[in-house]
Amino acid sequence: MAGLLSNFRNTIILSVILALVMAFGFGHSPHGFDDAYFSAVFRVMHVFFGILWIGLLYYFNFVQIRVMPQIPAELKPAISKYIAPEALFWFRWAALATWVMGVILAYSRGYLGEAATLGLWGGYTPGSDMGFVFIGVGMWLATIMFLNVWGVIWPNQKRALGIVVVDDAAKAKAARMAMLFSRINTLLSIPMLVCMTMYQTLFG
């Protein structure tokens, strides 16, 4: 068992296999393998990628950005050349996968239009369409965060980490820009999570 757990790839493969067994088991619920079943599968994928994305966002903001000034100069290249690029790979692709799976989930559940228009799709009905306002706000906040990752944070991180070669002044400016937009995403993440999770409990 220790040999299995010491290999990250094998650990993830086994975890996915166990998850697939569980998912197949849910196909024997009263729903069977109907539309609700596949919506549940989409939700699992949306939540998994969301945990990976937001978890790395919190790692960057709760740990790396705060601790970097305390790291001796001779040790910082280990972060910038090895840890940060790897973390940013999973970070940006998890952001994309989270957003795509969220759109697919909303479409499969039949509320994509209502959520995207904050309940105005087909005419707003006070009270009954309030849930679409909340889930729509959550979706738009997540969309802003996703666009920040690919449109601002990642391009600037490439300059800050030396993946794209620029002069020192441009590198410092890029690092600050990446940090500020990462903080914007941290700021938006908690209200986004409130909208997403409370909607599922009270309206979903």
Rank of each mutant, 00 (worst) to 15 (best):
27 G>E: 04
126 P>G: 11
201 T>V: 13
195 C>N: 09
59 Y>A: 07
49 F>H: 00
11 T>L: 12
136 G>I: 00
176 R>I: 06
12 I>R: 02
80 S>F: 06
154 W>A: 10
3 G>Q: 14
95 A>S: 08
92 R>K: 15
23 A>S: 05
80 S>E: 07
72 P>A: 06
33 F>W: 11
186 T>G: 13
109 R>W: 00
97 A>K: 02
120 L>K: 15
183 R>I: 10
18 L>R: 03
179 M>H: 15
33 F>R: 14
14 L>E: 01
20 L>Q: 05
174 A>K: 14
87 A>V: 03
1 M>L: 12
90 W>A: 01
83 I>L: 00
14 L>F: 00
16 V>A: 02
94 A>E: 08
33 F>P: 15
88 L>W: 04
84 A>K: 07
124 Y>S: 11
16 V>S: 04
61 N>Y: 07
166 V>F: 13
158 K>V: 07
124 Y>I: 02
133 V>N: 00
172 A>I: 08
93 W>A: 00
185 N>F: 04
15 S>I: 03
113 G>A: 14
167 D>M: 07
46 H>L: 07
33 F>S: 11
64 Q>H: 14
199 Y>Q: 05
90 W>C: 03
192 M>I: 07
54 I>T: 09
94 A>W: 00
143 T>D: 05
115 A>Y: 06
106 A>I: 00
48 F>W: 06
168 D>P: 02
105 L>P: 08
204 G>P: 10
25 G>L: 01
92 R>N: 05
125 T>P: 04
99 W>M: 11
94 A>G: 09
32 G>K: 05
203 F>E: 11
203 F>L: 10
67 V>L: 14
16 V>C: 01
163 I>W: 12
138 G>P: 11
121 W>E: 06
3 G>Y: 06
5 L>W: 12
146 F>E: 11
171 K>Q: 15
91 F>C: 00
109 R>Q: 04
204 G>R: 11
103 V>Y: 06
173 K>P: 12
85 P>D: 01
61 N>Q: 09
138 G>H: 03
120 L>Y: 12
26 F>W: 12
114 E>D: 08
157 Q>N: 08
20 L>H: 07
40 A>W: 15
121 W>M: 05
192 M>P: 04
202 L>F: 14
31 H>T: 13
179 M>V: 03
111 Y>C: 02
168 D>C: 10
29 S>V: 02
60 F>M: 01
107 Y>M: 14
141 L>H: 12
204 G>W: 01
201 T>F: 07
107 Y>K: 13
77 P>G: 00
23 A>L: 04
147 L>D: 08
48 F>S: 03
58 Y>D: 10
9 R>P: 11
122 G>S: 02
123 G>Y: 08
192 M>L: 13
130 M>A: 15
57 L>I: 13
190 I>N: 01
157 Q>P: 07
122 G>T: 03
133 V>T: 09
187 L>H: 10
3 G>S: 13
